[in-house]
Design a protein around this nucleic acid. Sequence first.
DNA 1: AATGAATGAGGGTTCATTCAT
DNA 2: GATGAATGAACCCTCATTCAT
Lengths: 198, 198, 198, 198
Amino acid sequence: MNGFTRRKEQKKEGVRQAAIVLFKTYGFNKVSINDIAQKAGVSQVTIYNHFGSKDELVHDIVKTVFLSCMEKYRAIIKGDKTFPEKMEIIVFEKTELTSQYHGEWMQTVARSYPQIQQFIENIWMQEVNRLMIDFFAEGKKQGYVNPELSSEALLLYFEILRKGIFASSDLIARTGNSEKLMRDLISLSLYGLVGRKE
Amino acid sequence: MNGFTRRKEQKKEGVRQAAIVLFKTYGFNKVSINDIAQKAGVSQVTIYNHFGSKDELVHDIVKTVFLSCMEKYRAIIKGDKTFPEKMEIIVFEKTELTSQYHGEWMQTVARSYPQIQQFIENIWMQEVNRLMIDFFAEGKKQGYVNPELSSEALLLYFEILRKGIFASSDLIARTGNSEKLMRDLISLSLYGLVGRKE
Amino acid sequence: MNGFTRRKEQKKEGVRQAAIVLFKTYGFNKVSINDIAQKAGVSQVTIYNHFGSKDELVHDIVKTVFLSCMEKYRAIIKGDKTFPEKMEIIVFEKTELTSQYHGEWMQTVARSYPQIQQFIENIWMQEVNRLMIDFFAEGKKQGYVNPELSSEALLLYFEILRKGIFASSDLIARTGNSEKLMRDLISLSLYGLVGRKE
Amino acid sequence: MNGFTRRKEQKKEGVRQAAIVLFKTYGFNKVSINDIAQKAGVSQVTIYNHFGSKDELVHDIVKTVFLSCMEKYRAIIKGDKTFPEKMEIIVFEKTELTSQYHGEWMQTVARSYPQIQQFIENIWMQEVNRLMIDFFAEGKKQGYVNPELSSEALLLYFEILRKGIFASSDLIARTGNSEKLMRDLISLSLYGLVGRKE
DNA sequence: AATGAATGAGGGTTCATTCAT
DNA sequence: GATGAATGAACCCTCATTCAT
């Protein structure tokens, strides 16, 4: 990659980051191309020159964010931590990874651009699901996961927890991270409502 | 209620329903007052005469939907079904009640209108939480809920599940309601990842 | 005038008064038919039934106000007070008469409705000017007015003073009606900048 | 100032002039941004890009006109003409300066935008009053102004005359600037109603 | 005769996008 | 290649006026 191309890629990355921050802060629909241009310190036209149109910009951002996000997922799952540690990271997102990927704006984008939704689903289903299924197999083998549960249900359950926690993040923050509460929540996801029969 | 008032209320209700359908279908931000007016078969100005502004229309709709939704919640919890049946209904919302209340547009609205968010939280916290705490007590008494879990944690867990399911509603719909999947999901919420130790 | 007609005329008068108050308070362009209807406690349609259209309502109001105003002028000029007293009343408008007739809204109306402007000018030129000319004649005869000045110039001068004072009413109010100031102002209009040569 | 800036300023000035002409011709409230845009030969959005909003456009125009107007005032007062000549120019505004500044639309604007009214009053009070007080001092020294009159009263009198003349500008225009009339008016302001005692 | 309901036309404003330098 | 300037389309909202009861 020569100097020209590198500088160009830097500008594009600057625009992407500016857009992501704004989308997260104000919501997708409230952010105009002009806002992004100002935040990124370039002219609107520059964005058009680089990305073509708003749709293409969005598509590019989603793609970029998604791929990088998936890479981090992979690193976690293939990493050295124990199963419960990995689970905690994935579900409770101690990492900042999904603070970027997630957020209402992604849902809105997916809704507004069927093309993008298609893309996400393809990637997600193909790549992430495969990772997760491996992960569950590991959990079952180590006795952390009920082997009777289908991978499909487990995937969905994780998705639900992940999205629910994300959507409740303000509530959780308001609890002040009380330890008892956190222990209870983890107990709930591990042993359910009924609790552990010893 | 005389003829005038009745017809007026019918028109208002028609507008509300048109708006809800459009919001659910296209997302809140993509729906203009003009769209709603056309769908409802009235003029834009009629909407303004009845509701005052887009904000007030939205507020009115949220209020209406929410109150009716809460009434149904109350009926379920105070009803005659067994604890697990009630839980299933509440969490997985087999009833159509939340098909109306839920939908990405509600999140978007709450995000765009702090006033409405405030309203929702007040109602929810004050009314729904009280109902839920009663519900948990019933569950603990009947042995369905681990008595060591705090009400706070249970509330939060339900909130997470509810929001997560809501946010995953499209995913769930796509599974086609397979029975095995549903059984697994219920198992997960009752006995957690680890599963029942018999 | 029978009961029906009287009641009808009362309603019309109520609408007129409401309109005048609103015009004076908020300016002609900021007042809608709806505002007037609400202030007058009737429906918009009632105004249309009585007056025909906004234009006709305005025309009617201007006509009414103007004629009543002129009647008061006539009473003052034909009254028993001395020339300087009359002058003070007319110019400095101690009476409330012109607080109604005057005001920015009248100018705006005249500007917007050439027909009305025509009407005002005809009445004013024909009636008021005649009154004023008599008044100047009286003043000249009594030695209060320089006989060399043309009636035209005197008319214009009065008009200028009247309008200028009206437009400066807030400034004047802010001076707190200091006596010295008032004496100076009267001296200025009687003896001009140069002052009295004794 | 390079080509860009110059052309931009030209466009802005074109918009300003178009707006002033339209305001003077049709009155402030009857002129829409669209009207101005068409008259100036640009798109509505261009006006928004340059001025931000209708309010800001108006503010900008008033400011521009006012400052240029004040500069001319200063030139007159500090100029070489005799006191009566200066007075005539200032009060009767033979110069075209106030044909621009004046007009009913300015009153309407001041009424509609308290912020602008504030601005005008601040400038006027601080700058113009200082100029006028110097001017009166000159008049008194040269024997043209009764030295017993307070500066306050003189200022108010001028203000009244100025506003009155301004408000009567259509009347004055209709007189066709007859010479006798003008002489009489000047006589009235110099020697008042009573006239010169020789 | 009086009213609540309804509307077409128009106003200010914003946005994604293109033009000209 | 990058920018300031410019725009058509669309949006929320208001107004004078008519319709239906």
